[in-house]
Design a protein around this nucleic acid. Structure first.
Lengths: 135, 135
DNA sequence: CAATACTGTAATAAAATTAGTTACAATTTA
DNA sequence: TAAATTGTAACTAATTTTATTACAGTATTG
């Protein structure tokens, strides 16, 4: 997995903690210490999922679109997640081997099972819970 | 996550299904459809974890080192796992920002919690269970 | 004992992915 | 109209992953 989840969590925590004003991509980038364009790119995705509201133009910026209690860490995971929880091999297994022939289907099933249980766990925690860890 | 987990699972399933003879890295590589040297490299790791026995020299190869029932999918995960279940951002958050200052500690805590529950789930399934999915 | 067929491991190269940068049109405010 | 900001795309750089090559070491077999 790449670094998108922690970045998304950082952005959302900042916005959830800042209800009275808009934050610019520059400000957010300064807190995370990455490029503002990357922040805007990830926010673009999070906005499409309804977590963030944005305002263009001078004095514009970002704010949280709904209460942190209504955003679970599972929602965020679903918004940034990679296709497979335990990684994908890029090979094409040998169809003439009895194991090779069936492995992809069986791995697929396993992953669905794992992902379901992982999401159930993440679903018990909200952005508000996470935000409250900050003093 | 990279493709090591599915590769490891493929290797171990092959060996668990093949108790009477040794399999060579060439044969295993043929089933997975990757380079034999990569197979040997991953096996080197799995051997260090006690899952695989190897025999050098002509007629050598690999075999499972203990019954599939005694190897859980969590054991395999621990053998190949990446440091962080939800990915790591490579940035260094701004220490002058109250959120940036604390985010790494809080993400760390979250990950430990998630990893623990993920491993508990994986621990309920064994290599034997997985192997039995193959007809 | 020499030829063969393997493992074990390292070094290197190629490919793929991820992150960073730059640029600029569009939008809003003042 | 000037300034500040988002939205987005194109491109570049860095990193990570996978593949390849090579070869020393070790058993086996005729």
């Amino acid at each position: 997995m790449n670094g998108r989840y922690p970045i998304a969590l950082h952005i959302l925590t900042l916005l959830n903690k800042t209800k009275s004003e808009l934050l610019s991509s520059d400000y957010i980038a300064g807190s995370i210490n990455i490029n503002p364009a990357l922040v805007r790119k990830e926010i673009s995705n999070l906005r499409n999922h309804g977590f963030i509201a944005s305002k263009e133009g001078k004095g514009g910026g970002y704010s949280i679109a709904k209460p942190g209690r209504q955003i679970t860490l599972a929602d965020i995971y679903n918004a940034v997640k990679e296709p497979h929880i335990l990684g994908v091999a890029k090979n094409t297994p040998n169809p003439d081997c009895p194991i090779g022939k069936q492995i992809n289907k069986n791995i697929e099933e396993l992953y669905i099972d794992l992902d379901t249980s992982f999401i159930a766990k993440l679903g018990t925690m909200t952005l508000e819970d996470f935000s409250n860890k900050f003093v």
